[in-house]
Amino acid sequence: MNREPKCNRVDTGSDSGATNRSDAVDLALDALAAPRWSGSPDWRSLQEQLMSHRSSFWSRTAVLSLVAGGVLAAGATAALWDWFPISGTMTLNSGRTAVVSGEMSELGGGASFEANVDTGGADISSGGSMEITMPDGGKATLVVEPSNGGAAPNAPTPPKKD
């Protein structure tokens, strides 16, 4: 995975099909792929940041462990982390269950988030809930409302099409 970018075109179908070097999109993508980062890693600086962050991180998550111990709207806690993986068995309002895995991530602004999960083909449109493990090991409950097809509470925008 550590490698220089290369032109790696695929036939993407409806837009342009096969690569055309004179195509404006391909030329733009070539231009966008061209810049090279010339900076060098600064391990000492990062190490200092790691040391200073470590103490504040653990004190913060320790508090959150207590908060997340009960049933908690996942949105309230997700905003405190940018992203973390989730998995578990969702109990659906239809009476069925679905094994899901995916991620929670902040949508921006620190107040809203999005759950993005693989349902393994199960229909979760009826809504449901599942217990999720927070990054600090605490538990929270992710509630999927029946009306929005899977968006978690506080998700500000419904799914939109391209």
């Binding site: 895995s101 991620e103 991530s105 949508l107 999005e114 993005n116 799914p159 939109k160 099409k161």
Partner: peptide, 11 residues
Amino acid sequence: MSDEQPIAVHT
């Protein structure tokens, strides 16, 4: 994360 597909398929 998808703004358009809250439910994505994991590969």
